[in-house]
Amino acid sequence: MKSTLTNMLCRFLAIAMVMLPFQTGQASMIGTDQVNSAAAVQLDRNVVLNYLSRSQTINQFQALGLDAQAARDRVAAMTDDEVGTLAGKIHAAPAGADGGGLALLVLVVFFIWYFAFRR
């Protein structure tokens, strides 16, 4: 199942790369993103990798309870680097959640112990 999906994706990307050379909307203005990328040779490779990271992250977001549109919108606000770092690691990444009432109490007890007995 996974390999079928990968196959289809690779075919799609191969066609997409032939048909859509990396360009910005304007005829001949060189885009800011292009200037930011150090070498043009790296560019095509990065486009593919980035596409894969983005779809992977969108899928994981959906698996974590977001609807398809929300998942796409949220990934759209991330940079290529951010998506690259996050892809495949969403389950492990820290997710800030709790006010920490109970845990803070535990922490206070820990510090009382630490300062009273360890010193």
Binding site: M78, I90, A95, G96
Partner: peptide
Amino acid sequence: VKWVYLPARQGSLQTEMLAASRR
């Protein structure tokens, strides 16, 4: 909540905190 909360993780990722501000 719709930009930074992940229901199944019951929390918010750091990347999304950075990304949502841009909206």
